[in-house]
Structure formats: C-alpha cells, structure tokens
C-alpha cells in the first residue's frame, strides 16, 4: 500500500500573478505547471525527521532569554492541524515569525519603519503538533506595519506560519490574521486569496482559551492536503 496526497486545490489558493501585489509581476511562473505522478520523492518529505530533531520553543513572550517579558497584548494562539478529511496531522513542525507589538520585525532588512524594537522580543518560535494535531503558542499580538507596495500601504496584523507536514506535497507557508482588522479589506496579500477561502486565514477570538488575568485566546485550525492510501 502506498500513501499519496490529494491534488493541490489551486482554486483554494491565491494565483501566482496578482497585479495588486506588485512583486508578483516578475516572480510568477509564466508557463503552466507540469503534472507529475506522485512518487516517493513527493510523498515523503522532511517533516517527520525535522520534528524529531526539533525542540519546542513556543513561548515568544520570554524566549529572547533576557529575563524580561515582551511588551504587548499577551495572546495564546492555538488550533489543530488537520487534513482535508478532518483527520489530525500529528508530529508536524510548526514554525512562526512575526513583528513586535509596534509592527517592527527584528530583522536587519527592516530599516524604513521607525518603530521601536523590543529587546525582550525576537518574534520567532516553533512547536510540534501532538497526537490530536494540536499546536499552541504564547506570544504578543503583532502590530500592523507599512510596506512599499503602494502609497500608504499597511499590512494587517499577522503571524507567519510554516508547516513542513508529512510530505513535500503538503508543504505550506501562510499567514494568520486577527478578527475585525480593518486593514484586511485593503491588503493585497490577504485579498489575493479567493473570496470563499479568506475566512480560513482569520483566527477566531475564543473566550474559552482566554485565561483570566493573563492572556487573550485565539483559535486557528490549519488544513493540509489529505493523505489517501492507494492499494
């Protein structure tokens, strides 16, 4: 029996070329993708081995190691990694990176936005999903930040997510957004997603996750391509 993965649902993903997001103009493939029969090259992948080698580092409020705490709205971000059939995807490495509460990244390329850095916040973390597919981070809510795409362009608050998943075919890099953000309506990167799927990128505020006198709770599930057994 061989495991393969359901096709990439191109209709659920953004197009390669989306003119409102200007940098796609020279970086989108111009030929069509070529179909391939999934072989072991595609149905295996680095996820399981890297999950084995990794350690959880899921508290972004203190993982700068300074002894101090990051400034910002303390937030629990949790959810399940599932496949299209609704089955949990365990043992998956989830890596995240984000701006600080002021919208500033701790990255050498960020020089244009004069917002303060927070010495107690690196903005990176990782964890592995459990048997139920669940992941959880403790972080601070990132701030929106300006970018050069068009005049007065601002990205809505977001956290970058990377999931290696069980195979090359399930590789996913995406962004999680927060509910009720007015910038979502005018963000070309978010708007590049087909309308029927945009809500899948927005976390839900969940009062059951919120911890009294401590942190707000957000729930966000992530769906990867489904495995199917081929006899």
């Amino acid at each position: 029996m061989t495991l393969t993965y359901s096709p990439r649902a191109h209709d659920d993903h953004p197009p390669f070329l989306y003119s409102d997001y200007r940098s796609t103009a020279k970086r989108a493939p111009s030929h069509g993708l070529i179909a391939i029969v999934q072989t072991l090259t595609e149905t295996t992948g680095p996820g399981p081995a890297w999950a084995d080698l990794s350690v959880d580092d899921a508290d972004l409020t203190t993982n700068a190691g300074t002894g101090g705490e990051a400034i910002g709205q303390r937030s629990i971000v949790t959810g399940r990694v599932l496949d299209e059939n609704g089955d949990p995807v365990p043992h998956t490495l989830v890596e995240i990176w984000q701006a600080n509460a002021c919208g500033r990244y701790m990255h050498w390329r960020e020089t244009a936005f004069p917002a303060p850095l927070d010495p107690n916040f690196l903005g990176v973390g990782q964890c592995r999903t459990g048997d139920d597919g669940e992941y959880q981070f403790l972080t601070i809510k990132p701030g929106p930040y300006p970018w050069g795409n068009h005049p007065n362009a601002w990205r809505p608050a977001h956290i970058h997510f990377s999931l290696l998943g069980p195979s090359v075919a399930t590789r996913l890099v995406t962004q999680m957004y927060f509910p009720d953000d007015p910038l979502l309506d005018i963000d070309p990167i978010f708007q590049s997603v087909p309308q029927h799927s945009r809500n899948l990128l927005i976390a839900a505020y969940d009062h059951a996750i919120t911890v009294e006198n401590w942190a707000l709770g957000y729930r966000w599930d992530i769906v990867l391509r489904g495995a199917r057994a081929t006899p």
Partner: peptide, 23 residues
C-alpha cells in the same frame, strides 16, 4: 468541486523576513 470535508488552508507569501526563522 472538492470531495473533501474541508478546504485547504490558502498559501501566503513567505515575505522578506523569513530568515528570522527558516534558514
């Protein structure tokens, strides 16, 4: 139409700052 219960979570760009975590 998809014969699955759920839609795949859409992809988004890795952006300019991924080296904070991914390489």
């Amino acid at each position: 139409m998809s014969d699955h219960d759920r839609h795949q979570t859409p992809s988004q760009t890795v952006g300019p700052y991924f080296t904070m975590r991914l390489s």
